[in-house]
Design a protein around this nucleic acid. Structure first.
Length: 106
DNA sequence: CTTTTGACTGAGT
DNA sequence: AACTCAGCCAAAA
């Protein structure tokens, strides 16, 4: 497999799927987990371990539309700023309108 | 090998 | 809405 960054690991499957979330949309750990037939916590684990800015992990929130408190690139404020920059509106400081912006896979 | 931990979820309070 | 508890599973120690 040469130097292809995408390999057949669970983590990379998660990253691949996450990269498909379009701008202005969000998804949840549970949706990704169900799509890949894995546990939600594994998704959280993969994104927590991830340091690749190419993965739009700021578009992944929990089922309540609440952003991660341990977001890895600058905390809650940074994730919120990125989402707002894509046109996603917040109901309050930490919650987006998940029903309005949720992106469904396949 | 075993134990702990965690960017979760769902049900119950 | 916020909190707790249990179930879940992969990685790290």
């Amino acid at each position: 497999m040469s130097n292809n960054p995408i390999t057949n690991n669970i983590f990379n499957s998660i990253y691949r799927v996450t990269k498909e979330i379009p701008e202005g949309k969000v998804s949840t750990y549970g949706e990704i987990a169900r799509f890949l037939k894995i546990n939600s916590r594994t998704v959280g684990w993969a994104l927590h371990a991830n340091k690749d800015l190419k993965v739009p992990c700021h578009r992944v929130v929990n089922r309540e539309g609440k952003i991660a408190k341990n977001y890895g690139f600058g905390g809650e404020g940074e994730q919120r700023r990125r989402l707002e920059d894509e046109g996603i509106e917040f109901n309050d400081n930490l919650h987006v309108n998940i029903l309005k912006y949720l992106y469904k896979f396949q």
